[in-house]
Simulated scan of single mutants.
Amino acid sequence: MITYRDARTIDGPALSVMARRSFTETFGTLYPPSDLDAFLDEAFGPNGLPSQLSDPDFTIRLALDDDRIIGFVKMGPVTFPGEWRPDAIELYQFYVLAPWQGQGVAQELMAWALEHSRNHGAKEVILSVYVDNHRAHRFYERYGFRDIGRIAFRVGETVDDDNLMRLVL
């Protein structure tokens, strides 16, 4: 049975393993191994995602199947370059492992993310998504997100284009 709850500091190691697996499942073939390893260590190593579990600026919601993390969404302050509304919030990461895709996990996590945003006074949600991740684009567009520009996204030494997307709440 799939359950949902806020992440706790103790979830750090398991969340790191799950995030590495999900990113590699989705994007692993796009990058040289050295770039992929560098990104995974920076984003999901001890100084990355696990360290944010104790940071009050971030909230991470987990999807679990028999206490095993199968998905998560991370929300926090907007860090993209540029001028942003003070009542904007960023959707940083949104991952669901492949075996659970298409089973309603992403919809449940998105419902939580939008509710969390509204409850924290946000008037818009900002995110970035890899330009060629068409499945993710379609998912976000179903919720009303619209492209508003491009931003560089670094994976090791590789620099990709991401679309910036915004949802006005």
Rank of each mutant, 00 (worst) to 15 (best):
A38C: 14
R135G: 13
I60R: 09
G104I: 00
A152M: 15
E42A: 02
E115T: 14
V105N: 00
Q101G: 02
L91G: 05
G48R: 05
H116W: 15
R85W: 05
R61F: 12
E141R: 11
A106C: 07
L97S: 05
I148W: 13
D55L: 02
L40F: 07
W100S: 00
E124S: 15
V96C: 00
P33W: 01
Q107T: 05
G45H: 00
V105D: 02
H116L: 05
D66Y: 13
L40R: 04
V96D: 01
G104P: 00
H120I: 03
L53S: 03
R118P: 02
I60T: 15
S128V: 02
L53A: 10
S51D: 08
F72A: 04
D132F: 08
Y143L: 04
D37M: 02
R154F: 08
H137G: 02
G82H: 11
I70V: 12
Y31L: 10
D87L: 09
Y140K: 11
F44T: 02
R146L: 13
D65C: 13
A38V: 04
I89S: 14
G71D: 02
L30P: 06
A63C: 03
S54N: 03
S54R: 08
L36P: 03
L109E: 01
D132Y: 12
E108H: 06
D147I: 14
P32S: 14
A111H: 04
R118D: 04
N133V: 08
I126R: 15
A113M: 06
A111Y: 01
R118K: 10
Q52V: 01
L114A: 00
N133A: 10
H134R: 14
W100L: 01
D55H: 11
M75L: 13
S128C: 07
R68V: 09
A63R: 00
L53G: 03
G76R: 08
G82L: 10
R135Y: 09
L62Y: 11
D35G: 08
Y143D: 00
G71W: 00
G82F: 13
L30C: 14
N47A: 14
E42T: 02
E108R: 01
Q103E: 06
P50K: 04
V131P: 09
F44V: 01
S51H: 06
E108W: 06
L36N: 07
D37T: 05
L40E: 03
L127D: 07
H137L: 10
S34W: 09
D147T: 14
N133R: 13
D55C: 01
R68A: 09
R61K: 15
W112V: 02
S51N: 08
P86N: 12
G121S: 12
D132V: 09
P99Y: 07
E83W: 13
F80A: 12
V78W: 11
P33Y: 05
H137C: 10
P77G: 11
P56Y: 10
